[in-house]
Design a protein around this nucleic acid. Structure first.
Lengths: 160, 160
DNA sequence: AGTGAAACGACCGTAGA
DNA sequence: TCTACGGTCGTTTCACT
């Protein structure tokens, strides 16, 4: 189960209804057996297996464990909007190295970057902002949006 | 493989090093066999399976398929900051019903809500902003941050 | 909470339509 | 790209520690 063959070109893949159904099944339960999925979509176990292989090799889909930060004791989350000078790709790289940051995206708009942080508590968040983030070369100003309640989350993916 | 027994109380669970290692293995590959994981963490297959069962039942972890919107032809993503009046929980509920929105969070700061949208192209994004989002009762102003490049994404989860 | 063993079911490779 | 099938390996259950 390697990552070999990822479609780094990023050309969209045309999916038929059957593959979409297979993905739906695995979005509900990533460990569902290929045989079970086959019954649900009307295909043999081997055919399902081949399609899943193709989809993961092409980088359309990944089957992974997703954790709940709250349950792991990370009670404080926030999105940080960053206005920057210089090369934002470079800054994004440096932000990505910070373990408390789980999400970094380069944007167009009144922020140049958005970064999501996962912290144990407010103290860790303050520490992170004051030492790790605002001190970075190229960071002009930041704006913090502390999460009060997560209402919806659907799993997409697209780091490349 | 139901969702039964989710720990909706949200009390943090204390995890030992072994469970953390198991989660790490599954974050890398959600379909890795329990036997393999057992070899990696020094536990029998049955013990690993019991722990994984517990972790998923407690709501600490979920094993799911995560898709890449780009590969599925959704070439335009954006974060939308929303300033609102009235009950933001109510507004969040209505935003969550919009299929193009995959992420809604209530925040403290200069936005009341953040919503992430996944669109096929710019036209769909414009349409969505003008018709579905800005027209909602309670939406005062919006600010859109179009994604240029996703740099880092780590899978967390916490909708309740 | 963990191991070990036996029965069962899933997965994988290959052959063939 | 699919089905069919046999060998191998993973999973499940249970008795035991």
């Amino acid at each position: 189960m390697t990552n070999a063959g990822r479609n780094h070109g990023g050309r969209p893949v045309q999916l038929d209804e059957v593959s979409k159904k297979i993905i739906e099944q695995l979005q509900a339960d990533g460990r569902r057996s290929y045989a079970d999925i086959g019954k649900a979509v009307g295909l043999s176990e081997a055919a399902v297996r081949q399609r899943v292989q193709k989809l993961t090799d092409a980088g359309v889909m990944q089957i992974v464990a997703v954790t709940d930060p709250m349950q792991l004791g990370f009670t404080r989350q926030a999105m940080i909007g960053i206005r920057a000078s210089g090369d934002t790709r470079d800054l994004a790289d440096r932000l990505a190295e910070i373990p408390e940051i789980d999400y970094v995206v380069l944007t167009a708009g009144s922020f140049d970057l958005l970064a999501e942080v996962v912290c144990e508590d407010d103290d860790e968040l303050i520490e992170l902002l004051n030492t790790s983030i605002r001190n970075l070369d190229g960071v002009l100003t930041t704006e913090t949006f502390v999460y009060l309640k997560l209402r919806k989350q659907f799993y997409n993916w697209g780091t490349r």
